[in-house]
């Protein structure tokens, strides 16, 4: 008994060491086997990218509000935030981009939380407002995304020759948090089918859009966007 007890500590250490060594060994072993290098072609620029959304099939899925994406997406979604912190404008940060465009929405919005608190009208709105902590700089972040969305649509909009200044139609866009366009609905027609179709085409070609990472901000502003097309720069 006494002899065995004396062996106990070294034995424990040896087992532990073996376990660690075996663990390291097997961890490395699980990686794929080595590949043979083969003849090289001309050097070409390649970028390593993690595909967030599966590209091949882009069938429009009927969208329920709470869960934005099926299966794979939540995981990649979690991964998404670090990158924008590094390169893309973070939604919460106040942005200087396109100040003249976000001027109109910025004006009424700062008052909103206080008004809602005072009047206690809409619980959901209050939640949405609270979710993004800093109420004062949120509209500006929204504004930069809004400006980007506008610019993308403008750059894709080819008006048909039958379009006239003063025509106007409304489209409602349904977006998902990846910025993809799920559906476009014609809410109000201009009366000219070609004009309506040109607007719809502009939106579909402009998609996908940049949208805020913050789910609360996205839900509050970008899940559903109403776009009014009313040209004022046409010849007629």
């Amino acid at each position: 008994m006494a002899g065995l007890r004396a062996y106990l500590w070294p034995l424990a250490w040896a087992l532990l060491f073996h376990a660690v060594a075996l663990g390291l060994f097997s961890a490395n072993w699980s990686s794929p086997p080595a590949l043979r290098q083969s003849s090289t072609a001309e050097p070409m620029m390649a970028e390593l990218l993690t595909l967030v959304a599966p590209a091949p099939k882009a069938a429009p899925k009927p969208k329920a509000k709470p869960r934005p994406a099926p299966k794979a997406k939540p995981k990649t979604q979690k991964k998404a935030p670090p990158a924008p912190l590094a390169e893309a404008p973070a939604p919460a940060r106040p942005e200087k981009a396109a100040p003249e465009r976000n001027a109109p929405p910025a004006a009424p919005e700062p008052e909103k939380p206080s008004l809602q608190e005072v009047l206690g009208t809409d619980f959901e709105d209050a939640l949405a407002a609270e979710a993004s902590s800093d109420a004062s700089d949120r509209p500006e972040a929204v504004g930069s995304y809004e400006a980007d969305l506008m610019a993308r649509i403008v750059s894709q909009w080819s008006r048909p020759p039958s379009a006239r200044n003063g025509m106007s139609c409304d489209l409602r866009l349904a977006l998902v948090p990846t910025g993809e366009l799920v559906s476009v609905t014609l809410v109000r027609s201009s009366g000219n089918a070609a004009f309506d179709r040109s607007a719809e085409l502009a939106v579909r070609r402009a998609a996908p859009f940049q949208v805020p990472e913050d789910p609360a901000v996205f839900d509050a502003y970008f899940r559903s966007v109403t776009v009014t097309f009313s040209p004022n720069d046409l010849r007629y």
Partner: peptide, 11 residues
């Protein structure tokens, strides 16, 4: 590595 930037271009 860096996740795919939200696609600037679709399709």
């Amino acid at each position: 590595n860096a996740p795919l930037k939200k696609a600037e271009e679709s399709d």
